[in-house]
């Protein structure tokens, strides 16, 4: 299913430092990604200290869950692979690896982004939030708790991506009125076990809990 995640066509795109030619094409189709790419394609070469980065590993830093992480990575490494392989932040999953399924969803500067479809080096200077950063098993985020309460997961491999997409959606749309609203907001994530019935209820419930938390 095509993404319905806040579609947004970038005004101009420059060639990004890319390990995959398809990224820009995908960027046009998947709104969150398109938005993320616009700024970073221009910003990255400057912050990497020259006109050309790589092909070998280069040092740079990423701001993740409020902490700065210094990494040395090839420019072709995606944000997803950097998170999973270099920083052991494995809540974001690699499933389709090309911006379709949303299992790798993280929040960058307040917007849901497919971490498989942006390059880590392009994420310098951005505020990156991963599933690990919004709660822990001991102190879960209200969206996470609602997913458990409504059994909005089975194998659970898509779930962290769903939770992040739901959080990003509720951050911008705190008052979804119906399951149809939720469906529109989470159209960019896929589940194989078939947990959508629980997801619809969980997100509506979480919206209520988040509002209560804000009012408290």
């Amino acid at each position: 299913m095509s993404s319905r995640k806040e579609p947004e066509v970038p005004k101009k795109t420059k060639p990004a430092v890319s390990r995959r030619g398809f990224i820009q094409g995908v960027g046009l189709g998947t709104g969150a990604l398109g938005g993320a790419l616009t700024g970073t394609a221009e910003a990255a070469p400057q912050s990497a200290g020259g006109a050309v980065s790589g092909p070998g590993a280069v040092p740079f830093s990423l701001r993740i869950n409020g902490k700065t992480h210094n990494v040395t990575l090839e420019p072709r490494v995606t944000l997803l692979d950097a998170l999973r392989d270099s920083l052991d932040l494995t809540g974001a999953k690699r499933v389709c690896d090309r911006g379709t399924c949303g299992a790798c969803t993280v929040i960058v500067d307040g917007r849901a982004v497919y971490a498989c479809s942006v390059l880590a080096i392009d994420m310098q200077g951005r505020q990156i939030q991963t599933i690990e950063g919004i709660g822990t098993p001991d102190k879960p985020h209200p969206v996470t708790s609602a997913f458990v309460e409504h059994d909005a997961q089975q194998c659970g491999y898509c779930t962290p991506g769903f939770v992040m997409a739901a959080k990003a959606y509720l951050d911008r749309n705190p008052n979804p009125r119906s399951e149809a609203d939720v469906e529109a907001g989470l159209g960019g994530n896929l589940c194989r076990c078939g947990t959508y019935v629980g997801v619809r209820k969980a997100v509506l419930d979480a919206a209520r809990d988040v509002r209560r938390g804000r009012n408290a």
């Binding site: 494995t90 809540g91 974001a92 991963t130 599933i131 690990e132 709660g135 822990t136 098993p137 879960p140 985020h141 996470t144 708790s145 997913f147 458990v148 059994d151 909005a152 997961q153 659970g156 779930t159 962290p160 939770v163």
Partner: peptide, 10 residues
């Protein structure tokens, strides 16, 4: 194991 999975720590 719901919380562990949904919080990304599993």
């Amino acid at each position: 194991d719901g919380i562990e999975k949904a919080s990304g720590y599993a």
